[in-house]
Amino acid sequence: MTQQAAAMQTYNNELAKCIEDLREKREELNSQIRQEEEEKERLQHDIRLLTDKLSRVNESLTQRLAARATFDQTLAETEAAYAKILESSQSLLSVLKQQTGNLSKATQPRRKEH
């Protein structure tokens, strides 16, 4: 029976070692899980911050795009009005030159015909 007891003791030692190895691997896995959970929390926090920042940038961009559209409309209207003013000024100048020419002719002394 001593041989059986020795074999039993060997099996018992190997079993205990296997159980201890499994516990160490489990603790190692637990450590990795904790690290990944911490990383996950950090990433989720970063995502929340970036989502908030994206929302603020989108809001600002929308306001700036609306302001630019207003500037574009104002510029277009102002340029069109200015073009009309230039056209009217050109017409006025043409009329004024014509009238000045007519007035000059009217005020010149007439030549006597013989």
Rank of each mutant, 00 (worst) to 15 (best):
M1I: 06
M1V: 06
M1Q: 06
M1T: 08
T2A: 07
T2Q: 04
T2S: 08
Q4K: 12
Q4F: 11
A5C: 03
A5W: 05
A5K: 13
A7G: 05
A7N: 07
M8V: 11
M8N: 14
Q9A: 15
T10L: 12
T10E: 06
T10I: 13
Y11E: 09
Y11P: 03
N12V: 15
N12G: 10
N12L: 14
N13L: 10
E14A: 14
E14V: 10
E14R: 12
K17A: 14
C18I: 13
C18M: 14
I19K: 08
E20T: 10
D21N: 07
R23M: 04
E24Y: 08
E24L: 13
K25P: 00
K25S: 03
E27D: 11
E27R: 12
E27W: 05
E28Q: 11
E28D: 10
L29T: 15
N30P: 01
S31K: 11
Q32F: 04
I33G: 00
Q35R: 15
Q35N: 14
E36S: 11
E36P: 03
E38K: 09
E38Y: 03
E39T: 15
E39H: 15
K40G: 02
L43A: 06
H45K: 15
H45Q: 14
H45S: 14
I47D: 00
R48K: 11
R48P: 01
R48L: 10
T51S: 02
T51V: 09
T51P: 00
L54G: 10
L54M: 09
L54Y: 07
S55M: 05
N58L: 06
N58H: 08
E59T: 15
E59V: 14
S60H: 08
S60G: 11
L61P: 01
L61H: 09
T62Y: 05
Q63D: 04
R64A: 06
L65F: 08
L65P: 02
L65M: 13
A66T: 09
A66V: 08
A67L: 06
R68F: 07
A69I: 05
T70V: 13
T70M: 02
F71P: 02
F71Q: 10
D72P: 01
D72Y: 01
Q73V: 09
Q73T: 13
A76C: 02
E77D: 10
E77H: 07
E77Q: 12
E77M: 05
A80I: 03
A81M: 03
A81R: 13
Y82I: 07
K84G: 02
K84A: 09
L86Q: 13
E87C: 02
S89C: 12
S91H: 11
S91K: 14
S91L: 08
L92C: 07
L92S: 11
L92W: 04
S94K: 13
L96N: 09
L96Q: 05
K97T: 14
K97E: 06
Q98N: 09
Q99W: 03
Q99H: 05
Q99T: 12
T100Y: 04
G101M: 02
G101E: 01
N102D: 10
N102M: 14
L103K: 02
L103C: 04
A106I: 04
A106P: 01
A106L: 07
T107Y: 04
Q108N: 06
P109F: 01
P109W: 00
P109D: 01
P109A: 03
P109R: 03
R111Q: 09
E113L: 14
H114D: 14
H114M: 13
H114R: 15
